[in-house]
Design a protein around this nucleic acid. Structure first.
Lengths: 157, 157
DNA sequence: TATTGTTATACTCTATAACTATA
DNA sequence: TATAGTTATAGAGTATAACAATA
């Protein structure tokens, strides 16, 4: 055949130190792991000045876009278990970025809202995150980025 | 309207529950996170019958392909810190899959080798991992997979 | 001095069981 | 009985500092 199967070559790829990694470089799981490590590290450093971890940023985004949701709704939208979400909201509330308002329809739940400072921090974070995203686009190319995102969504679906 | 410009809509995409996720669905970092979660879960379930986590599988692969390496070399090849690698090797040695042989050149370090059982488990794991990989290829399409891997490597570089 | 393996430690993320107060 | 929020707990993964033996 005219074109070679690069998958076969991938299977024998070596690191810079000459270590044979076998099938790992051709594995989507391990490639994802390494890419995510680098990208997350960059986003963590980018949001460092605001003392915001990526997950906390995502929570601010969702509450900012959908004020009044309760904890179960926000955590479900982000794929976080409600049990693990309590600590996150506790932290954001202690920092004065989020408020738990008593819900009028259901006295078991809280309606989540950003404070004024929460909105300011969120706006600053969105700016920094956009710069981080632009850095990735430079790495991938605009076309590369537009190819990558749908492929990742297919994997997550 | 029948068709829409999906690029623009990404920034306002909603979940099935109607929650607005703002810029998150257009973020490479968050898309990576979700994809990796799904893919890793599948690999974990796939290797479950062998009681092998993906990281432990990767360690067996590297030792199998490069017998005689020491702990620092294997851990560096996989991007694991040597300090965190100790527990991993302890576990694999206790299970009888890996042996630490005293190195003849450097009495500080061990030469790592698979046991016979280690080779058997590795072979079985490679078979299961290949099936997992094929499952992902069905999701992505062969072309999708060949687009995805180089993009992920560019991010990790 | 530098490196290999090691221990101790800590922080994040994730996962499960069980409780309380409401519905 | 089911759900929202909570607590307690445990397992991974990842990070740094410091030590003993050896180079």
């Amino acid at each position: 055949m005219a074109f070679q199967h690069h998958d076969q070559q991938d299977a024998a790829r070596e690191t810079s130190a000459g270590v044979n990694l076998g099938p790992l470089p051709a594995s989507v799981c391990f490639a994802l792991r390494r890419a995510q490590h680098m990208v997350t590290d960059d986003l963590v450093r980018t949001l460092q000045p605001l003392n915001l971890r990526p997950t906390y940023f995502a929570v601010l985004v969702v509450i900012g876009e959908n004020p009044g949701l309760n904890q179960s709704e926000v955590s479900a939208a982000l794929g976080i278990q409600r049990t693990n979400f309590v600590t996150i909201i506790d932290h954001l509330e202690t920092r004065g970025l989020v408020e738990r308002h008593p819900s009028k329809e259901d006295r078991r739940s809280y309606a989540l809202h950003l404070t004024e400072e929460g909105r300011e921090v969120l706006n600053a974070a969105r700016q920094l995150q956009a710069e981080h995203e632009q850095r990735l686009t430079q790495k991938l190319g605009q076309e590369g980025r537009e190819l990558l995102l749908p492929l990742l969504r297919r994997l997550a679906a």
